[in-house]
């Protein structure tokens, strides 16, 4: 081999990167571009049957489809409630676990268990809990605490059917943010908090004015990740309400799924996916622009 050591040094890193890059291009970039192409076609899933190019028709249809509006609205509501819900409760749990002296590992594990449980299993569990009238939630509401005189038909009305979905999203997500917050809290030097105490700051002031700004980048990171996660809610909706009643609880992905796999309209489903992608990309860009201000610990 007549390649100099210097040249080898330069080639080798790329050789290590190549497998991952190939997989990335093959399984992410290519499907993405293919999906973009499909969105302009009346796509035939039969490999032997030609698809017809219909230009922007799928996108025009999406803007005229009322259920698309409902689905995007529900996705937004889900995100706007579950993201702050997860962040606040996760922060509360993280601060408490950070400050207790005994049972740290126990509580950390306890809060993290929902994260590692299967979406499918907990979704079915929630569906079961919110059954009407004989579900466990209704039993507690009516028989034990006498909060309502009659069982609530949770999954029968659009207004209440999103509650189990949102509740599941928050409950299952707390542990993930909590672990990240815990790590961030552990990285703050003791001295800073102590200095604040000497200056007369109470616990709340210490948290609000010292701790929170120091872990700011971490909070922003979880915010971005959770927003993306929120927009991608699917399994829980699919299994708990399946978009019902009357397609009132469809979210972007569940509606897309129904279009593709129930109604076999892959072109339309692809156009919906790109509309959702446009929303997510815009949102993420805005966040990066306005929220990313690193705080230095010096």
């Amino acid at each position: 081999m007549a390649i100099s050591t210097n040249t080898q040094k330069k080639i080798i890193p790329y050789l290590f990167l190549a497998p991952a890059a190939v997989l990335f291009l093959l399984f992410l970039v290519y499907p993405l571009l293919k999906g973009f192409q499909i969105s302009f076609y009346n796509w035939s899933i039969m490999p032997t049957k030609p698809s017809t190019f219909i230009g922007l028709d799928n996108y025009v249809k999406a803007f005229q489809d009322q259920v698309v509006g409902t689905a995007f609205k529900n996705t937004l509501i889900y995100t706007l409630i579950t993201v702050p819900g997860q962040m606040i409760l996760a922060m509360l749990a993280a601060v408490m676990i950070h400050n207790i002296t005994r049972g740290k590992i126990f509580f950390r594990t306890l809060y993290y268990i929902p994260v590692i449980t299967s979406w499918v299993i907990v979704s079915l569990l929630f569906r079961y809990l919110f059954q009407s009238p004989e579900g466990l939630i209704n039993y507690f509401l009516v028989e034990v605490f006498h909060i309502t005189p009659d069982p609530v038909g949770w999954l029968q009305q659009a207004g209440t059917a999103m509650i189990p979905v949102i509740g599941l999203g928050i409950w299952k997500g707390i542990g993930w943010s909590m672990i990240i917050y815990l790590a961030a809290l552990a990285s703050i030097p003791h001295e800073i908090g102590e200095a604040a105490s000497i200056d007369g700051a109470n616990t709340w002031q210490r948290f609000w004015a010292v701790t929170l700004p120091l872990i700011g980048p971490t909070v922003v990171f979880t915010l971005v990740m959770l927003l993306i996660g929120g927009f991608n809610v699917f399994i829980s909706v699919y299994l708990i309400t399946n978009g019902g009643p009357m397609q009132q609880t469809e979210v972007a992905l569940s509606y897309m799924y129904h279009q593709a796999f129930d109604f076999i309209d892959f072109g339309y489903a692809a156009s919906l996916s790109f509309l959702l992608a446009a929303v997510i990309v815009t949102g993420s860009l805005l966040q990066m622009k306005f929220l990313r201000r690193p705080v230095e610990i010096s």
Binding site: L155, A161, P245
Partner: peptide
């Protein structure tokens, strides 16, 4: 009422 939505066992 499960027939209205949510199903029934």
């Amino acid at each position: 009422p499960g027939i209205k939505g949510g199903g029934v066992d």
